[in-house]
Design a protein around this nucleic acid. Structure first.
Lengths: 295, 295
DNA sequence: GAATAAGGTCCATATCATGGACTGTCTGGA
DNA sequence: TCCAGACAGTCCATGATATGGACCTTATTC
């Protein structure tokens, strides 16, 4: 159930199947699949059914991933999980994609000012991934969202903020893609409910999750964009319901908007410096047009 | 020059070649190769020569990696670099392999106490990778080492500390594997020089790099281990030569040793909690014996 | 503006990945 | 103690899939 193709880039090429490296695509699909269970790893059976591949193939690909250190198998449980090499690669990639680093200051300020826990979330296809959770000091804290957790776009405050920031046809596509998962695993997040929340989010300027995922665990969120307009991620704040009265929501929305705008400024600066850093900037403004499908 | 097989796990299977997923191995090799240039990325030609593959194959595998988001191609320069997905995977993997997170407090303390810049380095086969650089406050700082930088084991303070912490036969193997690279690209780090430094490191209890990589940029380092004895990484401190007199070296060695020991304590705690967290601990003490070669 | 070099692609070939069928191992019920 | 079921892991004949020599295209150099 819940086949790979359901969430991954539509088996990479919607039609025109010929990718030229089936096994690599499959292996990388497994990597992403295993990433969905960052805490405990996955048993082989689940990977097999989750990927739609058969056992020998899955196992063979897993062995290749393990040889590279990207995946490890816990000897006790025989579960497969992300390996140390994945972690190291991430640190290397952070040199260019340092969203987390850019956001850390802002999250710290948010949590310090509000005493509540704040989050950085990014979009990954039709899902949202929580990249960081910055603890607040208030003694009653919700633990509904941990770093590494993933939910369909629209489920949760930051996630909903990102969905609302997308153009309408993207919204439709995302909701359609997630429909099965929403109905099956997210009671209270039926497509129509999501659309209602989304409308309110756009109207209000920030998203609100009134304890839909975990009772009493409320949150508000706000998305931010890359200079080119693409949604880059979202910041959000979570607290128990008693600390999320309408008036406090409005209060919290102010620093949240401030930090989201700051993120956009920082991203804009980063883009500028990237362009500037490369002195070969003169020619070649025409699009590169590699084989990658619509993105 | 400097073929993939030179640094990667000996093409995975030293002899007995049949891996069962050649193309996946190759693709993941490329990923690791691209990771060596985390700042600017690599042009296709360099990837081709660096991997030992031919152009069409390389390109096809790169396309697969790009489809998965692990690699991106900068449109301006056409260079290939690690993609956003690699960054996200790293964050996910950090849930289990949170060495950086464990070390951050210690690094901050070191830099605060000493005013100098401190580093976390880990081993990756025959190389050392700098995972984090924590700036000190002293106005004259060396920038010889950045997060993401990689050098052969033994080159640099943290790197040398890790090499010295390995058993002798591993040391021999590592030095032999790096010999060509050392002679070609690291003047002052000839194998014999490395062995002399190593002996002094073991004697002294910490490593010293007396400006061998960049003149006037000195550093001291100390390795720390996992509970099972494997080397986990190294902490190090760098400063200009005038702040690295023998007496100050001895001074700095104290907090450095303290933090390295604290890392070992933290790692031990992590291991315990991991074991405890999994209630299926009863049976199966026998080694799992997958196909992976000697590690 | 011709020459060089680097990036990118095509397509017939045989190598390499595939998956049905099998074995080994653990769990729990009688 | 033994057997049934579930799950992990492996084998190997087959043909679908990755391979790489040859070729094309785009930037840069003189």
């Amino acid at each position: 159930m819940d086949c790979l193709e359901e969430r991954l880039p539509q088996n990479s090429a919607p039609e025109a199947g010929l990718s030229g490296s089936q096994s690599v695509d499959r292996a990388l699909g497994l990597l992403s699949l295993i990433g969905r269970e960052p805490a405990d790893g996955m048993p082989l059976g689940e990977i097999v059914s989750g990927s739609g591949l058969n056992k020998p193939t899955t196992r063979r690909l897993l062995l290749a991933l393990m040889r590279a250190g990207l995946v490890e198998q816990e000897p006790q449980t025989r579960r497969y999980c992300l390996g140390e090499e994945a972690f190291v690669l991430g640190v290397l990639a952070a040199r260019r994609h340092g969203l987390l680093e850019l956001a850390m200051d802002g999250l710290r300020r948010l949590s310090a000012e509000t005493q509540d826990t704040s989050f950085l979330t990014v979009r990954r296809e039709n899902y949202a991934i929580c990249l960081h959770r910055e603890e607040g000091t208030y003694p009653v804290r919700t633990h509904a969202l941990q770093a590494g957790d993933q939910h369909p776009l629209g489920v949760g405050a930051g996630s909903l903020a990102m969905l609302a920031a997308l153009p309408d046809d993207d919204v439709d596509r995302v909701i359609a893609a997630n429909e099965a998962a929403l109905l099956a695993r997210y009671p209270g997040f039926a497509p129509e409910a999501l659309r209602a929340d989304l409308a309110k989010t756009r109207e209000r300027g920030f998203s609100l999750n009134p304890g839909r995922l975990v009772a009493s665990s409320w949150g508000i969120g706000r998305a931010f964009r890359y200079p080119d307009g693409r949604v880059a991620g979202a910041l959000s704040i979570a607290a128990i319901d008693s600390r999320m009265t309408p008036s406090r929501q409005a209060e919290l929305a102010v620093p949240l908007a401030r930090e989201a705008e700051r993120m956009e400024t920082l991203l804009a600066e980063m883009f500028v410096s990237k362009r500037a850093a490369r002195p070969t900037a003169a020619a070649a403004p025409r699009s590169i047009e590699t084989g990658r499908a619509a993105r």
